[in-house]
Nucleic acid binder design. Structure first.
Length: 734
DNA sequence: TCTATCACCATTTTT
DNA sequence: TGGTGATAGA
């Protein structure tokens, strides 16, 4: 492809401007569905071909592995060449790459391991126990988010000012101890990857100069999601001289609670010299009804950079709004509508149900199952996060590094081999006193007679097992090592003996791990680095597992309705979208309603949800919802009021749902029981308020059966739900 | 060492 | 309501 103008083919003026801008800083404000990835990919191609930028000089950073993969794949397709040497990756994978290459300068052990948030939490829990710290006052999760928060802000313990506050001081101390534990074990958490690589560059001017020289252009995707540390990292790496192309959308910033700083995208233009601003506002995804509605909603946010989506396409259908009388009814409406739409020829996979919180999926799932509609739910446990996999990985880590206390503790008695909590406790105390690792403590304790005979032999057996595996690993390939670990440690046996289906699935997962390892050796890692062989491959494999935990749960059916949270829907699109539970307190969530800033983020989340829809959007809400086991009255979300009425149509109760539940003659069965059926049972309908002599007032939620055998489910204030037989209960319509 | 029971809690989760 | 984590008991 020598004709560079081909890169600009079929692009709109704004896209063209962004792609072909001369080298220099550029901020591309890319609205939802505006062809953002395409622009990014074509921009790289343009830089390489029109600006003669070497592929080696490109650095493209994303947030997710998926995005990185997609960018690389599309770039290769566009250019028709392999780009394995181009640096395309997530912030974390690139930081990792720097640290592996310069581990000495970064003052890390050569075989440092990456721990995920789960490992991190375990480590913190352990720490709290070891130092006898009240985990009521210092909940492990809070400690974890404190530590991560500090790192995201680029702060080391000594840089945190506790203002003499006792609580904060304790937190800082925990941070310090946590960090020491990590250092001793050669462990690096997600935040540490970034912070450490920032420090690496900052403290090694020669190295920094090398990379600043090497990269001729840096591109960043989803810039609105960068945190303080990532922003600083980019600033340092580019020295504010290497030109950057950053792409993002302030209106889609929904990860503020995770440390993302929306200000970053706002201040980029001012802080980086001569920044060119390009807006991509033409949308190729949604109907104009959907876009106009979304535009109108997001206008309620203050402090926007300003952007208005438009389309050359059709108006499309109005947004349907359905208010169910309870969450069951809401689910039933959604599922009924889906069945109708599928009947009209729409594929199930083209339909998504989005909700604010995971708990909402239950009712919807149950309804889908009852009606036999296949679905797939995102957000399940990922492959490398499964218990059995994490155990196997812990053994593998031990092979590389005996001083990895977290891994050792994880598997020292899995499967059970007679090393109880008491024994481990002894080791821990000892390790703490001497400042050694548990592995060292294990060896000392088994040789100096401070432990009982049985414990000693169990410990020795464990240590021997690890050493033996290590010895054998020498001549084996990666997947053979893993297979052997699975077998010899007894993990496979352990799960095989587990009762139920679960054990079987776990055994299969362990086998799958071997398969994954095989595939891994044949392929290459995310950054395009070769996997290597034997122990080197193992190291790369473990890093890969930590940085790329795998896809969310595999799909059970080929063509199924997609269920997910609004957050995980970002970046996706579906012809038909349902947004469920659009109610005050749920969406916007009550935890985010007080602060204006957080409310705006909720609104952006709503904006993100709406702009996922291509053809048809549904809002649903319920008047009554079961939340944490009790019924709550819900009001429609303010967001529904913020969308101009002209774009929406209220769906009326219809079909089954609106059918009045009436009763007629007494039935013989009841009369036999000596109950006076009564000629005039009240005429009731769903959603109606009724009064009961004992339970008081309530609302009819559900009904089944006919005549006086008909039963209605009534939600009474303070009494909860009750199923009542009409023939017995004295219900008075209100 | 495993299991049963009970209190407790409850947005969102790219790496 | 339902899932989780701690704890007591066999």
């Amino acid at each position: 492809m020598d004709d560079v103008t081909a890169i600009l083919d079929q692009m709109n003026p704004a896209q063209r401007e962004a792609v072909s801008a001369p080298q220099g800083n550029m901020l591309v404000l890319a609205g939802a569905g505006s062809g953002k990835t395409r622009v990014l990919v074509h921009r790289i191609a343009w830089l390489m071909q029109a600006e003669r930028l070497s592929p080696y000089a490109v650095l493209a950073v994303t947030f997710t592995n998926k995005a990185a993969r997609e960018m690389r794949t599309r770039l290769e397709a566009l250019l028709g060449i392999s780009l394995r040497h181009v640096w395309v990756g997530t912030f974390h994978s690139i930081a990792h790459r720097l640290l592996r290459t310069h581990w000495q300068d970064a003052r890390l052990p050569q075989h440092f391991q990456i721990i995920d948030s789960d490992d991190q939490l375990r480590l913190i829990k352990r720490l709290l126990k070891d130092y006898n710290i009240d985990d009521e006052r210092y909940p492990p999760r809070q400690v974890q988010s404190f530590i991560s928060g500090c790192k995201e802000e680029g702060l080391r313990p000594h840089q945190v000012d506790a203002h003499g506050d006792a609580y904060l001081s304790q937190m800082v101390e925990l941070y310090e101890r946590y960090q020491l534990t990590c250092e001793r074990g050669g462990l690096v958490d997600f935040g540490e990857l970034l912070l450490r690589s920032l420090e690496l560059l900052r403290d090694n001017p020669a190295l920094l100069a090398h990379y600043q020289e090497r990269f001729g252009h840096v591109l960043v995707d989803e810039f609105q999601d960068t945190n303080t540390l990532q922003y600083a990292w980019l600033k340092l790496l580019t020295g504010m001289r290497t030109p950057m192309t950053v792409v993002g959308d302030d209106d889609q910033s929904i990860y503020g609670w995770r440390g993302a700083r929306i200000e970053n995208i706002r201040r980029f233009e001012n802080e980086f010299p001569d920044t060119k601003l390009v807006r991509l506002e033409q949308n190729y995804r949604s109907t104009s009804v959907i876009l106009d509605a979304a535009n109108a909603l997001i206008r309620y946010n203050a402090e926007r950079m300003g952007k208005e989506l438009w389309t050359a396409g059709d108006h499309g259908e109005l947004i349907s709004v359905y208010g169910g009388f309870n969450d069951l009814d809401e689910a039933r409406y959604i599922v009924d509508t889906i069945r109708e739409r599928v009947g009209e020829g729409i594929n199930r996979r083209e339909i998504a149900i989005l909700y604010r919180s995971n708990a909402q999926s239950r009712v919807i799932e149950e309804t889908l199952i009852r009606q036999g509609v296949p679905y797939r739910i995102y957000g399940g446990q990922r492959f490398y996060e499964r218990l059995e996999i994490k155990n196997a990985l812990a053994y593998l880590r031990l092979l590389l590094n005996r001083d990895d206390d977290a891994s050792l503790e994880r598997v020292i008695n899995v499967p059970a081999r007679g090393i109880g909590t008491r024994t481990v406790e002894t080791l821990r105390n000892r390790a703490r006193q001497t400042g050694d690792s548990l592995w060292q403590a294990l060896h000392d304790a088994t040789s100096d007679g401070s432990l009982r005979g049985r414990a000693v032999s169990s410990l020795k057996a464990f240590a021997d097992l690890i050493e033996q595996l290590d010895n054998e690993a020498a001549g084996l390939s990666l997947h053979e090592i893993i297979d052997r670990v699975n077998e010899r440690t007894g993990l496979v046996e352990h799960h095989r003996n587990e009762k139920g289906e679960k054990g079987q699935a776990r055994v299969e997962n362990l086998e799958e791990l071997v398969t994954a390892a095989k595939a891994f050796t044949q392929g290459e890692t995310l950054d395009g680095v070769e996997a290597g062989e034997g122990m080197a491959a193992l190291e790369a494999f473990l890093a890969e597992a930590a940085l790329n935990a795998g896809e969310h749960e595999a799909d059970e059916f080929e063509d199924c309705v997609q269920l997910m949270t609004l957050h995980s829907a970002k970046g996706l699109e579906f012809p038909v979208v349902f947004m469920a539970g659009v109610e005050e307190g749920l969406f916007p969530h009550k935890m985010s309603m007080e602060e204006p800033g957080r409310l705006e983020e909720e609104r952006r989340l709503c904006y993100v949800g709406m702009t996922r829809a291509m053809k048809k959007l549904y809002f649903t809400h319920a008047e009554l919802r079961r939340l944490h086991g009790k019924e709550t009255f819900q009001r429609p979300s303010r967001f529904l009021r913020e969308v101009p009425e002209g774009f929406m149509e209220e769906v009326r109760l219809r079909g089954q749902v609106s059918r009045p539940v009436t009763t007629s003659r007494p039935s013989p069965g009841l009369q036999q029981n000596g109950v006076e059926g009564g000629a005039d049972l009240p005429s009731l309908s769903l959603g109606q308020r009724v009064s009961h002599p004992v339970f008081g007032e309530g609302v009819i939620l559900n009904a089944e059966g006919e005549g006086e055998r008909a039963r209605v489910q009534v939600s009474f204030e303070g009494e909860g739900d009750k199923w009542l037989v009409l023939g017995f209960a004295k219900l008075t319509p209100l």
